[in-house]
Write a protein that binds this DNA or RNA. Sequence first.
RNA 1: GGAAGGGUGGCUGAGAGGUCGAAAGCGCCCGACUCGAAAUCGGGUAGGCGGGCCAAAACCCGCCUCGUGGGUUCAAAUCCCACCCCUUCCGCCA
Length: 422
Amino acid sequence: MLDLKLIREDPEGVLERLRRRDPTLSLDELLAQDKRRRELLVQVERLKQQRNRASDEIAELKRQGRDASAEIAQMQEVARRVRELDQELKACEADIERLLVVLPNLPHPSVPVSQRKEDKVLLREWGRKPELGFKPRNHVELGRALGILDFERAARIAGAQFPMHVGLGARLEWALLSLMIDMNVREHGYTLVLPPYLANPTSLFVAGNLPKFGDQLYRCESDDLYLIPTAEVSLANLHRGEILSESDLPLRYAAYSACFRREAGTYGAGERGLIRVHQFNKVELFKFTTAETSYDELDSMVQDAERILQRLGLHYRVMLLPSGDIAQQSAKTVDIEVWLPAQEAYYEVSSCSNCEDYQARGGNVRYRTEEGRIRFVHTLNGSGLATPRLMVAILESFQQEDGSVVVPPALRPYLGGVEAIR
RNA sequence: GGAAGGGUGGCUGAGAGGUCGAAAGCGCCCGACUCGAAAUCGGGUAGGCGGGCCAAAACCCGCCUCGUGGGUUCAAAUCCCACCCCUUCCGCCA
């Protein structure tokens, strides 16, 4: 969530930045409630002070064995008034909380201002589109023909848009995950985490998924738990409520998890097969940093994700997202998009965000500086990477005219040396 | 699922209606001793909110916080209720 003090001190500045993301946002009610809260606080605190002093006096009188009934009678009235004001204050604070949590993070100055998601900015490209010399088959056809993807039987088990990998398809998926874990742990210095796949409501509020995006989540009602849409949820809550030491930062975690998304209302034309699914595998990168280093850490996180695509030999481009298209909790987001030959389009395979102190404030994750001051950490998250579209990219980019698919050399050690799927 | 015990500062742990934001120890910081260090000795060491002053920092004052939320009381870490979590044992099951 945003810093209420900052909103109070510079409402125009905050509102201007908020409206880069959503021109309909307003702070009027929030500011009014905040003012009211502070007025109530002053009132109720004055009464409590009176009560505390009287309590000391009553205690002293009793110790001396003297009568305190006059003072006690007087305090009964004060206590009643305190209860009333406390209730009013509580309602006011609940209103503030409700208004505050729906406000998105402030975009970083480098983020292009636009409500149109097409207005993303190309930062760089790597490689080139593969020249197959024949009309590319899409991954659904390839997967079915090779017997490595089985959506029909998966639907029998769970419904549409659930993938099922079989045989070399499953092994290829596993190989991808193994490669990503190895590179991120051994070459990029992340600590591997296997987190819970279910999370409580608090965790989803901290991560930024609730309250606004609950319709995208699978919920286990009888236990009041949610299936995580990304391991970002688990990792953002890993140090919830802690005060870390500056010397421990940055903390870099890489988590493997399955991810679950309802994708309500997103049935896109042509998004068949693995392009948009309700369940997928992902290695998620997450960092806790100081304010000073978080943007350098964002750059290096994007590069960590890019190196995996480079190792696989997949053509991609890196895009800076505009203000209207970044996630609630993010101040700046960089997407990596891989080229999918049969779709003839670039598709997101990684989304790296700096959430600055937005998640940290909600989760109360702080650190003590060398000088002893306490500040909120910055949190960053990024896919490194999600597998479904990687699988699409591999099948479609490395397909041969005879319908076989050449396995990228980097994956072969994980597949017992298999060079092609046919 | 059943039973018992327990959640107190960075950590261990005492406190069982008022003098308790909280003993003691450890850790950490500062100082003394020392050429320097260790040991020793002295001092300091939780967080949040609000106000004084709004431009920050420092300082001062007040309020709140002993798992969370309610209740009793003039007054709650302490008594009552509900919930959450942890530990141990039993049962069940990968």
